[in-house]
């Protein structure tokens, strides 16, 4: 992947106010950054939210976005994290069409990726998998051999290792 168009992990700590998400999303869209995934959840204390955003774009544009997000009145911190600095996780639910002959093979794949079977019917199976985004990509790729009826992923969440702040 070229430097101009690499994927970046951003973590934004933001006061939980109406419009905060829209302001942040606008900062990205105005500079032509495409948000690949966005996770918003409650922070450690109730009045704040944690947003994890992965987005593709060039380095200079990213620096601008970080500074422009940081200056938003509701934003307490906006940081970029490399993959090495953080623990990153994502969860996927995959619904695969399987008949009784295919079920065994699919379960084998699930087992390899430590995915859980969370729903099973005569014609389908729903797997739940957790891990790095790359691991989930690999699993989904293998499952494409079968018919994937539905796929939903939470998007990446990250947390800085050790004492460092996310």
């Amino acid at each position: 992947m070229s430097k101009e168009n690499s994927t970046h992990n951003l973590s934004i700590y933001v006061a939980n106010r109406p419009g905060a998400l829209a302001r942040i999303a606008q900062t990205f869209s105005r500079r032509g950054f495409n948000i690949e995934s966005l996770v918003v959840s409650a922070g450690a204390t109730g009045d704040f939210s944690r947003m994890t955003i992965t987005a593709k774009g060039d380095e200079a544009g990213l620096e601008q976005i970080i500074m422009q997000c940081s200056k938003l009145v509701d934003v307490l911190a906006c940081r970029e994290h490399t993959d090495e600095e953080v623990v990153a996780r994502e969860l996927a639910l995959v619904k695969v069409a399987v008949d009784s002959h295919q079920r065994g093979e699919v379960l084998q794949i699930a087992d390899h990726f430590r995915a859980k079977t969370v729903d099973l019917s005569e014609k389908s199976i729903v797997l739940e998998a957790t891990g790095s985004s790359e691991k989930l990509d690999a699993m989904v790729d293998l499952l494409r051999k079968y018919k994937i009826i539905e796929l939903v992923r939470t998007g990446k969440v990250i947390m800085a290792r050790g004492e460092r702040e996310t």
Binding site: P18, G19, A22, R23, Q26, R30, V73
Partner: peptide, 16 residues
């Protein structure tokens, strides 16, 4: 108006 003006204000409020 809250959303219409979002990119051209320093900050904004919709008072509830």
């Amino acid at each position: 108006v809250f959303n219409l003006t979002m990119p051209i204000v320093k900050h904004s409020y919709l008072v509830k």
